[in-house]
Design a protein around this nucleic acid. Structure first.
Lengths: 369, 369
DNA sequence: AAAATTTAGCAACAGCGTTGCGTAATAGGG
DNA sequence: CCCTATTACGCAACGCTGTTGCTAAATTTT
């Protein structure tokens, strides 16, 4: 499905996206900044800036006097020129956020979902929530779409919920299609953890290396950012990190195997030993680092964020204490900068990214089933 | 270091590489094949084909008569138009292969390396081996370079061997630089497992999805192919898959942690229970699948290939038997199609890939240390 | 007031894929 | 034997991209 052809119009979108990325990362920028960051000629940057200004995506924001010479024009993104709405669909709650072009979260609202809610009930809740958020003003015209982050398994490419874990009415639901019809908005569907790591990456900009988001919330999942893009795996099923075996002789997990990270962690947490649970999680995180060699690990999820410092300390220590880790092998561990909004915000940013992010080219796609 | 700019000349290289990829995958192809595969217009493909033919990289290979109408010209890659040499540097042996533009392995030779060999000794062995392989004919002029696959840790971007595991004389050796000077050839340095998975991906073409190469050979390592490219991690240290904990109460590993996959596997193998060892490895492989959701798992490595069918059966069963794996969640498990040559051949293909592969664009690079 | 310096942009250009249309080569039918 | 339909191929003009060469504008320094 991804485009393969490279014609000149690709260059246009690509270089525009580079400038937008600079603007998002740096807040304000000028022609010389972009020249340095992209390697384009100043003249080319002028053309790109002219196009983006005409589209209302960026605007002049004063001048910088370099001492001697003609002052440089400083530009900034126009935050309210485009918006996207992000939804985090969990088992019992729906969280909606409004995110602008710069990645700033404007509104955040949580509403309960009926136990074992149906697709129709979700659509109604989405519809109502979106109306509330876009009610005042002509915001609707600048809305690029809705991003939905939700539990899997699902099929990202086709917008299909295969079999949402723990929800009875969600077998092979073409959620993207029916939501687009119901809401009259472009919809993007992805796993919750993948949306979450996208939020962190989008906010940190191009200097964000390979990273993972560890989410502890009715299960343990992982979202991955590898090689400058979200990693979803061959069937949008990457991130079932909680179901990796860490204890061959451990208790039997719901998944059928023994000693999964999730069940071992759960037992410890259930026993009230949060510190031990955190250390178990930390073992899993170090396993990830050994396998993937990540630059960032971001911690999130409701259960984890109830004891943020305990988890942060345990993971930081395990990552750092590993004797084999040399000084060049550094991994930054942090709590999610967006807190509980991270999934919903990331889902929204995925929508913005489709329009104003760096386009992909020639991603080889293997035909599913 | 990666290019960021997108100017028109990028399109040239990119679309040429697409055609080369089609040729490599399909052996023979014609204009219509490329049109379908790339989405370019027939006229554009004609131009690309003309350029590649002029460069001697492809050539006409007969015609196909479609029944009615003008016959279509069939093209093929010119295998002997370009070569690369690949080296697999292990603790006691050096394996060299000669690979042509199509990815075919022409010669393969193994020579012993002195115990605890020095960089100088390796360079001499490389030099001698390369001379033997390129001795006859004017092959040297069509040699694109040397690829080295070796144990880590190392720094791929800077061609630096940081601290090759088990080799005393290899601390911060700028191997790429000194090898280029010594041999007069462009040199590409990468971890052995990463080179190996590149070989599998390069041979399978664009339909090869996310994949891992599992290598069991004086340690257990993993090479990853994710999102159409090799995954090396933030510090070229991805793949230390053997040092992930699978048994929290297991024996202490050389890395300092307890119950690493490698030590647990090693104990079983040492006890002579190959089947058990294979099942342990299989647990690790399923852990990988849960985390990364791979389409292919390739098994390789000298220790594994001593009992190929036992390992293949154990991994295949574990992957398939997992009750939660639905029909849409398929992973192909296979032994390396190149056998013991896979690392060396992959290293060579990485060199060819730098010249004739699909160029990357705007890979964001985080500054090291 | 003149010179130096820095930034911005107009105009011509090269190179890419695209479009429009003519040409070559084959099979089948009258 | 000739005409037509069909399929493959390519020349020429074109639109759009970033690049290059050069001029203009705005500011500080001398």
């Amino acid at each position: 499905m991804t485009r393969v052809t490279a014609d000149v119009s690709f260059l246009r979108g690509y270089n525009q996206a580079l400038v937008m990325a600079v603007g998002r990362t740096a807040r304000t920028f000028e022609r010389a900044t972009v020249v340095e960051a992209t390697g384009l000629t100043p003249q080319a940057v002028s053309k790109v800036i002219a196009r983006l200004t005409a589209d209302g995506l960026i605007r002049p924001a004063g001048v910088r006097r370099p001492g001697i010479g003609k002052p440089a024009v400083v530009y900034e993104l126009v935050p309210d020129s485009r918006y996207a709405i992000g939804a985090h669909v969990a088992r019992r709650t729906l969280r909606l956020v409004l995110v602008d072009l710069t990645g700033a979260v404007h509104h955040s609202a949580v509403s309960p979902l009926p136990r074992d809610f149906t697709p129709e009930q979700l659509l109604d809740a989405l519809s109502a929530g979106i109306d509330t958020m876009t009610g005042t003003g002509d915001l609707r015209g600048r809305l690029t779409g809705l991003g939905i982050g939700m539990i899997g398994p699902l099929d990202h490419a086709n917008g299909l919920v295969r079999d949402a874990h723990g929800l009875r009415h969600w077998h092979d639901v073409p959620l993207r299609e029916i939501a687009e019809k119901h809401l009259g908005l472009p919809v993007h569907l992805d796993k919750d953890v993948t949306a979450g790591i996208t939020a962190e990456a989008w906010r940190h900009g191009a200097t964000f290396g390979d990273a993972a988001l560890i989410m502890v919330e009715s299960g343990i999942g992982g979202g991955f950012w590898l090689g400058g893009a979200a990693h979803r795996g061959a069937h949008t099923n990457a991130g079932e990190f909680g179901h990796t075996v860490v204890d061959l002789t451990g208790p039997r997990c719901v998944c059928g195997r023994h000693g999964c990270l999730e069940i071992v962690h759960h037992r410890a947490a259930e026993a009230g030993d949060v510190a031990h649970a955190a250390r178990v999680l930390a073992v899993g995180v170090v396993n990830l680092l050994q396998t993937l060699d990540l630059a960032h690990v971001v911690l999130a999820g409701a259960d984890l964020l109830r004891h943020p410092q305990i988890y942060l300390a345990a993971v930081t220590e395990a990552v750092g204490a590993d004797a084999r880790r040399a000084d060049w092998l550094r991994t930054r561990v942090a709590l999610s900068s967006l807190g509980a909004d991270v999934i919903a915000a990331g889902a929204a940013m995925q929508v913005l990214d489709q329009h104003y992010g760096i386009p992909e080219l020639g991603q080889s796609v293997i035909a599913g089933s």
